[in-house]
Simulated scan of single mutants.
Amino acid sequence: MEFVDKFMDSYWDVAKDIDFNSKKLQLSIFFVVFNPLYWNFGARLEYNTKLLSKLAFGSKLLAVYLFSVSVFTLGLIRDHVYKEAILEQPTSPLLDVPLVKALGVLSFGVGSVFVSSSMYKLGIVGTYLGDHFGFLKDERITDFPFSVLDNPMYDGSTLCFLGTALWYGKASGIFISGLVYAMYQLVELLEEPFTAKIYQKREEQKKVK
C-alpha cells in the first residue's frame, strides 16, 4: 500500500502540471483527434464515391498522391502545434531528470525507426491508404517492422510523441501522447475491418472471373 500511495502522490504531482486552459494545448488536442479521422474517412469517401479521383481528372494515382500531401501536411502542422503547446506548459520536476530524458531519446529513436521503416516498406501509396483508391497489395508485408508490430507506424508515432514529452519533462506531452495512442486504437477499429472488406471483395471478384 505504501508503494501505491507514493505512486499516486507522484501521479497527481505530475498531473497538476498540465494547464488545460492553454489555447495551444487545446489546438494540439484538436489536431490529434482530427487528423486520423480525416485520413480514415477521406480515404473511405474515395472508395465509396471516387470523388477524389474525379477531382484529380480521373487519375487514381494523382488522387492518392494529392491525398498523401494533405495528410502529410496536416501531420507536420500537428507535430509543430504539439511541440509549441508543450513548450509553454510547466515542466514537471519529477520528469526533469537525466533518466527520463534518456528514456525520451530511446522512445523517440525507436519510434522513428518504426515510422521510417514502415514508410519504406509500404511506399507512398501503401502508407496513405492506397488500397482505398484501388491499389491493392498482392500479399501482406510480414518482415520488419511488421514482424514486430501489427501497426508499427501508429505505434512508432506514439513513441515519438512520448519521447518528445519525456525529453522536455512535460506532463502535458504525456497526456497528449496517451490521446494519440487512443486515437490510433480507434482508427484501427474503423480501418482494419473496412480494409479487410476491400480485399475480400477483390477475392470474390477473382472467383467470379
Rank of each mutant, 00 (worst) to 15 (best):
P36F: 11
G42A: 11
F20G: 00
W12M: 11
L25M: 06
F34T: 08
N35H: 12
A43K: 04
S28N: 05
N21S: 15
D13E: 15
I18E: 02
F20N: 01
P36D: 10
W12V: 06
N40R: 09
S22H: 04
D17C: 05
W12T: 11
K16Y: 01
V33D: 03
Y38W: 14
F20L: 13
A43P: 08
A15F: 07
K24S: 14
W12L: 12
A15T: 03
D19N: 13
K16S: 14
F30N: 04
K24M: 12
D19G: 02
N21E: 12
F41H: 10
S22F: 05
A15H: 04
I18Q: 02
N35L: 15
A43Y: 06
K24R: 13
I29N: 02
A15R: 07
W39T: 10
D17E: 14
D19Y: 02
L27W: 11
A15P: 03
A15I: 04
P36I: 12
F31M: 14
V14E: 03
N35I: 15
L27D: 01
W39A: 07
S28Q: 01
L25A: 00
L37R: 07
P36G: 09
K24W: 14
V14M: 09
K24H: 09
F31C: 08
A43N: 11
A15E: 10
G42H: 07
W12E: 11
G42Q: 10
K23P: 15
D13N: 13
L27Y: 07
Y38F: 15
P36L: 10
F34Y: 15
